[in-house]
């Protein structure tokens, strides 16, 4: 068993359990998951709806709390952190990319990124971040003036502008056509590599496995399989 204190680990997850109380009785979203994530690694989490992959992502992102177990990030157990500490963790260490982009409609592309750079400790400039996703010519466009793919690339720029250690992506191409999806994934890949960010991508789409260092498969709240991909490909070579 790897040592959680080992220096090159981004996350060390032990016995992570999440139980939701529902009217029909308790639902086990995670049943004692163990996982170590190395720094700079790209993981793709696959599995059907309700298999627990998003729940794991939410807990690792400091959005949700576990019912039991530990999720250690740099010696800090996210399952025991205060609300304030989790907010600081999200602000300083994590970049999020969502299925529905979640841009602020009243702010331009540049301002959506600036929203984050205003908070971060050593951010890149919004212009730099947008240049990295190929949107230098859309700085002052509002979300309503951008295509879905462009909006998601703004979201990628927003996520990486703070130079996060962790990038968490929940179905990042789920509401995009395949061409836009590939563009977004490539942008994601480029910037995460440049920043050496640990990247976790949740998806239904098994084709994502090709870009991963490791592929984690979920079913019924548990990890059923961890596959190492010795030759990850560039997204632009993938067919989604």
């Amino acid at each position: 068993m790897p040592d959680p204190a080992v220096n090159d680990l981004a996350f060390s997850v032990r016995g992570l359990t999440k139980v939701y109380a529902t009217a029909a009785g308790p639902v086990h979203a995670l049943r004692g998951v163990d996982l170590d994530v190395r720094r700079g690694e790209t993981l793709v989490l696959l599995g059907p709806s309700g298999s627990g992959k998003s729940t794991l992502l939410n807990i690792l992102g400091g959005l949700d709390r576990a019912s039991d177990g530990a999720a250690i990030f740099q010696g800090q157990d996210l399952t025991r952190d205060s609300d304030k500490a989790l907010t600081a963790y999200r602000r300083d260490s994590v970049g999020f990319i969502f299925q529905f982009f979640n841009l602020v409609p009243s702010l331009t592309a540049r301002e959506n990124v600036a929203l984050i750079t205003e908070l971060a400790r050593r951010p890149m400039t919004p212009e730099d971040a947008l240049a990295r996703v190929g949107l230098s010519d859309r700085l002052d466009h509002f979300p309503a003036q951008l295509s879905g793919g462009q909006q998601q690339r703004v979201a990628v720029a927003r996520a990486i502008a703070k130079r996060p250690q962790i990038l968490l992506c929940d179905e990042p191409t789920g509401s995009l056509d395949s061409e836009s999806g590939v563009q977004v994934l490539q942008a994601l890949r480029d910037v995460s590599r440049a920043e050496a960010a640990t990247t976790l991508i949740v998806s239904h789409n098994a084709d994502f496995a090709a870009m991963a260092d490791r592929v984690i498969r979920f079913r019924d709240g548990a990890i059923t399989d961890i596959a190492v991909n010795p030759h990850p490909v560039e997204p632009r070579e993938m067919r989604l």
Partner: peptide
């Protein structure tokens, strides 16, 4: 609500 929740996720107090 959605914008605000997004901001909370992004680390806003």
């Amino acid at each position: 609500a959605r914008d605000l929740a997004t901001l909370r996720v992004l680390g806003f107090e």
